[in-house]
Design a protein around this nucleic acid. Structure first.
Lengths: 198, 198
DNA sequence: TGATAAACGGAACATTGTTCCATATATGGT
DNA sequence: ACCATATATGGAACAATGTTCCGTTTATCA
């Protein structure tokens, strides 16, 4: 489900050869290493930290991500993919309301842990311009699926759509400066309670 | 009104000599140069750009601002001071409602042009920890003064306090990605209309 | 006016971003 | 299985920027 090669342009291939397997391996290793390093050191971490953890040279890094923002965008896309892909899995293994709650917390964690995200989106960097659309395209269907299932079961109110909920939970999950540790989880729970039909 | 030396600790001076005048001059030159450079190149502008414009050496820079965040915080404090100081001046020279509207636009512009602000506040950098309290301490009284004056004249509703308005206008002023040029000014105007008593 | 501590400037050093290219390797045709 | 070739790789070299250090200058006070 998750696209390991997110930005392939139109299907036209003037290329006579396919992308080499070592290139794919490097690409994935870099995205994964970057995710770890970003989590511990923030999105401004040195390139050498990432290449070191990925076990590739700096030249390889710049071959795959000519602009630094390209890597950050790839990491975000990768994480959004994981989050979206969690929805069908949850739907299969849990009752409707439970699956919905679990996914909202999953999504909330994604927002809360990505400090750099909001800044990146507002930075004006062209590498990030397509991200919001991508987020929407992946997350809305994922949530819609869970919502519809819960709505069919008559377990939630129906006067909010996926968009409302995605942005509401995002705002709730923005880490507040003065918040107690479990703050986000609690407010999202409250929101979730409000979502239930009475 | 504006404090040119914002972070002097408790009044106790164990110091036998006062701060030298050239030190004050350098400090102010740096803050002013930084404000200009930040405006044109963002808060990540090279240190040498700032020292160059200020006409001081890099050593002087680090003597005044051991951490880069210290400078950014100083610039923000400086701008908040300007904004707060505008309130009494507007109150003297304009009718209540007009003064209030003018100040809200002034404040809105401050928020809108400081892209780096929100990111800085959420960055977890300890240099910024005291900023929100400072903002509140300076801006709330400034706005309260204008609100009370307009309320006494019976020109505005009274079921919103300064805090509500400060945060509401801040949210309205956050530059949206897809917004048309004059977007912020228009929505702030609408908010201002809503504020009038009927 | 002279002694002194404070402040200054900028070279030197440290860190990180980016480019370049000689070398290594996957791929498709034979 | 082997070769020719485009592709990918690694890391040294370079560039840009952050930060420290210290010899020199200057404001302040007695």
């Amino acid at each position: 489900m998750s696209s390991e090669h997110p930005t392939e342009p139109d299907g036209s291939d003037t290329k006579d050869r396919a992308r080499r397997t070592d290139a794919k391996r490097s690409f994935n290793a870099l995205v994964q290493a970057a995710r770890d390093v970003f989590a511990s050191s923030g999105v401004d971490a040195p390139v050498r930290d990432i290449t070191g953890k990925a076990g590739v040279g700096t030249g390889t890094f710049y071959r795959h991500f000519p602009k630094r923002g390209d890597l950050i965008a790839a990491v975000f896309r990768n994480e959004v993919d994981s989050c979206a892909d969690a929805a069908p899995a949850l739907a299969e293994n849990h009752p409707p309301l439970e699956a919905l709650a679990a996914w909202l917390h999953r999504y909330s964690e994604f927002i809360a842990t990505k400090r750099g995200l909001a800044s990146a989106l507002h930075s004006g960097n062209p590498a990030f311009e397509t991200l919001p659309a991508y987020f929407d395209a992946r997350l809305r269907p994922a949530l819609s699926q869970l919502l519809e299932r819960a709505a069919k079961a008559g377990e939630i109110r129906t006067d909010l759509d996926a968009d409302d909920i995605i942005s509401a939970v995002a705002n709730l999950s923005m880490p507040a400066r003065t918040a107690r540790p479990d703050h986000t989880r609690r407010v999202v729970n409250i929101f979730m309670d409000g979502l239930k039909s009475r």
